[in-house]
Each structure stands twice: as structure tokens, then as C-alpha cells.
Nucleic acid binder design. Structure first.
Lengths: 141, 141
DNA sequence: CTATCATGTCAACATGGTTGACCCAATCCA
DNA sequence: TGGATTGGGTCAACCATGTTGACATGATAG
């Protein structure tokens, strides 16, 4: 197979792979009337607990106006708690509540299961290669 | 590293990797007032030339109303040509025009370059592994 | 005391998607 | 032949997600 064809195939696999990867959590979220944004917020808050609004914005790479509505929604649903930092009364500390953790675990859980299944099927070498490629890709941005 | 942490890391890498992957074509498209939809249309028409509207819809997995506007736009811009099938007067045959091919090549080209760079850096084994994982993932959908 | 910072909020807008309803023309089939 | 199905197109209402610009407020830094 010519090099160009292999690369074209890679584009396609990337597209379909990502689509398959994001579908299951989307379905769970839809049942609660939430969207992919909410998932990203829950995820990043969970992994960077506690995190300031500013830092969260930088991670998500969206405007504060875009973050505001869904974040407020998550706070009202008691999935995320918002406190104030001790060292600086301006910055907010976002963290997951118990039920927020639970939902986040459920969402990420389906993706982890999915990845576990394909990694197992593909083998440890393939898994290591996948990681290498993804890391290199993310770093170039 | 515990298994769960490795899988969580994979989720994150997938997200950032995909984001980095889609950013360059998005920038090119934005200059022409086009979006990611247009790219997907150009790509799938290019790879399945000639393709019927119905088949394109199935590939993109969107409603026909969602496809209509951007497709019409691409036809008006003479990037895509629409003919009628000989064997069945109902079905349309979509294909890329010369300038459509050129744009598509430019868009996919940036992605291919990007992939080529990371594959080269990561090595042939990593590349093969990446493909294996992505294929397995896409098949499960 | 003033400037800067972190955050919040309002408004206007663009894009990309949905469902539902309805239309036409071509083809299939009984 | 005539009715049902199929491929395609279009209108309308709606929703989610994002943008930029402008402005407000309270806390901190110099």
C-alpha cells in the first residue's frame, strides 16, 4: 500500500474511532439532559480537584461565557461544588461532589471499558504504540 | 502505574490528540467561510466517488436536513458536482470537481503531514499498533 | 488609592444539529 | 395501469454549543 493511502486510511480511522469513543457517554448524558460539555467539565474538574475557573477555562479552551451556563447547571444539580480559595478571595475552587464523582466515574467508566477491550484485543505493544502516537500528536498542538 | 490510571490517561490523550488533529484543517476552512461539515463531505465524496446522497448520509450519520445546506453550498462553489445516475433517475451522483479535489487534497494534506510526522517519530511498530487499536475501536460501533 | 485580576452576566450572533411535515419525480410491483 | 415505495429536496421550529463585545463587582497588589 502506498504511503499516501496508508495515511488517508489513518484519517478515516481516527474519525470513526473517535466517533465510536464518544458515543457511549453521550448516550448516558442525554438521559440526564446533559451534553458533552458537561462531561468535559466533570472530567477535568475531577482530574484537577480543586481547580479554579480560570484554569478550567484554559484546559477546555473555551470562552468563559461558554463555560458559565453548563457549569452553573452542574452546580445547581449538586454535581460540582464551588468554594472560595483561602489564599485569594477572588478565585473559586471547583470540585466534584459525591454524586458528581459517581456520574463522572460512570461516564469515564464506559470509555475505560471500551479502551480496555480494544487494548486487550490488540496487545500490549499496540497499546504502547497507540499511546506514543497520541502523545506526540497532542504535544504538537 | 495502576491499570485504571493508564486508561484515564488514554482518555485524555485521545481527547487532546483529536483536538490537535482537527485544528489545522479547521483553520484552512475558516478562511473560506466553511466548517468541519464541509470537510467531511469533501472527504467522503472524494473517497467514494461517485456517491449517492443516501450513501453519503449513511456515512456521515446525520439527517438529510443537516446535509442539505452545506452540500448545496459546496455545489454552488463548484467544489462538488451533482449528476444523475443512468440506471436510476432518482439517485444523484456526487463527485469532486477539479477545484474540489484540490481543496480536499489541501485539507487532508495537512492531516497526512501531521500523521506522517508523528508516525515517523514514533516508529513503524507504534504506527501499526495505533492502527490496530483504532480499527478495533471503530468496528465496535 | 488605583490598577489589575478572577469571576459573572447580558446581548447579539453563527453554526450545526435535531424532528416533523410535506413535496416531487422515478421506479417497483401486483 | 395504478398504487406503494424510494431518493431527494425543502420549510419551519427548535436546541446546543460556541463566539465577541461590553460591562459589573469584589479582592488583591503595588
Amino acid at each position: 500500500m502506498p504511503r499516501a493511502d496508508a495515511l488517508r486510511l489513518a484519517i478515516e480511522q481516527f474519525y470513526f474511532g473517535y466517533r465510536a469513543f464518544t458515543a457511549p457517554p453521550d448516550r448516558i448524558l442525554a438521559q440526564r439532559g446533559l451534553g458533552r460539555v458537561h462531561h468535559r467539565i466533570l472530567y477535568f474538574v475531577g482530574r484537577n480537584q480543586p481547580i479554579s475557573v480560570k484554569d478550567l477555562l484554559a484546559l477546555l479552551d473555551v470562552s468563559k461565557q461558554a463555560l458559565n451556563a453548563p457549569l452553573r447547571q452542574l452546580i445547581e444539580m449538586k454535581l460540582i461544588a464551588m468554594g472560595t480559595a483561602e489564599h485569594d478571595g477572588r478565585v473559586r475552587q471547583l470540585s466534584l461532589t459525591a454524586s458528581g464523582s459517581k456520574l463522572e466515574a460512570q461516564l469515564s467508566g464506559t470509555q475505560m471499558k471500551q479502551l480496555q477491550a480494544v487494548f486487550e484485543q490488540a496487545g500490549a505493544d499496540a497499546e504502547a504504540g497507540w499511546h506514543q502516537v497520541m502523545r506526540a500528536l497532542a504535544e504538537k498542538s
